[in-house]
Simulated assay, not measured.
Amino acid sequence: MGETIQEVLSRASLFLQQHNREPKIAEYLLCHHLQYTKTDLLLNLRTDLTANIINQFEQDLVVHVQTGKPIQYMVGLEQFYNRTFKVNEHVLIPRPETEELVQHVLAMTKDMSRPLKLLDVGTGSGAIAITLKLEQPSLTVEAGDISVSALAVARENADRLGAEVSFCQSDFLQYWLQQGEQVDWIVSNPPYIPWTEKKQLADTVRDFEPELALFANDAGLAAYQQIIAQSTKVLAPGGYLAFEIGYQQGQSVKQLLKQAFPACHVRIIQDINGKDRIILAKC
């Protein structure tokens, strides 16, 4: 008799734990190999696995443990807002904190009295822009990224998920400045980790996710400085800015917003872990 899903998962979780890796990765990876949802996995814990599946699964675990390569890059997929997005080494792996940013933007745009135009700056995999369009179809959504490789991933995700989003290459808001366009919302999860913190990051992030999307100069504030300065010409009067931020950057980003938009109303919102994570500004 072969081993059951439960037995294989138990052994894999212990293996990961012993090597200081996240034990829950075992479930994620096994779901991929079996083409199961998490529910499928839980309903079939007593099902026997073939030797071939076990071997492939354990080989991937060893690669992850030895190199730190994120499982999401190994399988090429990640979940965001209950949808499956393609990811690779050219884009950040979408995270739950960013889902919270999307939730707040959706809550504030659902009752607007007219069609709104929204811009996602530094779109990466397209997770923010695509999710906002699919959840709020009345929004006109545009998205930009400086990375051509990231844009290729975002376009593929939009096509696969059926989201009508316009993508273009742009260094932050440069394209929209040149076009003389104005938008009602600017949303961004920009690079915000100070370079001085690079050595402290987990190897799964530091050695694999794109530096362009992770790190910023000026104590991690450089991207906010540029986006906010450019937004003074791109954001329509009475428009909104929404950022994901590092948990120690709330007051600094608020100050940048107040300098650019003296009359703006700024809210700093904490994430599910009680850390400052989102800034919403009505300008």
Rank of each mutant, 00 (worst) to 15 (best):
V148H: 12
L106N: 10
E156I: 10
T140F: 03
T131E: 06
S147N: 06
L116W: 04
L118F: 09
Q136L: 03
L119Q: 05
N157F: 13
N157Y: 12
A150Y: 08
E142D: 04
V141E: 10
V148L: 13
T123H: 05
E142M: 12
A127R: 00
S125V: 11
T131R: 07
I146L: 09
A127P: 05
T140N: 09
R114I: 03
P115D: 14
L106P: 08
L118W: 14
L116R: 14
L151S: 04
M112S: 02
T131G: 02
A152M: 08
G126H: 04
K117V: 11
G122Y: 06
K133H: 02
L151C: 05
P137R: 09
K133M: 01
G126N: 04
D111A: 08
V121T: 11
L132I: 10
A154I: 02
L134Q: 11
L139A: 11
P115Q: 15
K110H: 13
E135M: 13
T123M: 04
D159M: 03
A158V: 00
A129H: 06
S149D: 15
I146F: 02
K133I: 00
G162W: 05
Q136S: 10
L119S: 04
D145Y: 00
K110R: 14
E135L: 10
S125W: 03
V153A: 12
R155L: 02
E164A: 08
L119V: 06
M108Y: 09
T131C: 07
A152L: 10
G144W: 05
G162L: 03
G122V: 10
N157W: 11
K117R: 14
I130R: 02
R160M: 11
G162H: 02
N157L: 12
Q136R: 14
T131Y: 06
L118N: 14
K133S: 04
R114H: 07
D145M: 03
S113D: 12
D120H: 07
T123P: 03
V121I: 15
L118I: 13
A152S: 14
S147F: 08
I128A: 13
D111Q: 10
E164S: 06
A127V: 13
R155F: 00
T123I: 03
A152D: 15
L132E: 15
L161D: 07
R160S: 15
D159K: 12
T131P: 05
P137N: 09
G144R: 01
K117Q: 14
L118M: 13
I146G: 01
L161S: 12
A158I: 01
A154Q: 05
T140K: 12
K110D: 05
G124T: 07
I128T: 15
G144N: 12
T131S: 11
G162Y: 06
T123Y: 02
I130K: 08
D159Q: 14
L116Q: 15
D111C: 00
L118T: 14
S125A: 09
D145I: 05
I128R: 13
S147H: 09
I146Y: 00
A143Y: 06
T131W: 08
G124L: 06
T140P: 02
A143P: 08
V148F: 05
G124Q: 01
D120P: 05
E135R: 15
D159R: 13
A143L: 06
A143H: 07
G144K: 00
A127G: 07
T131N: 10
A154F: 01
S138W: 07
A158T: 00
A154Y: 01
T109K: 01
A154D: 03
V148R: 09
G144I: 07
A152N: 13
K110S: 09
L161M: 10
A158E: 00
A152H: 11
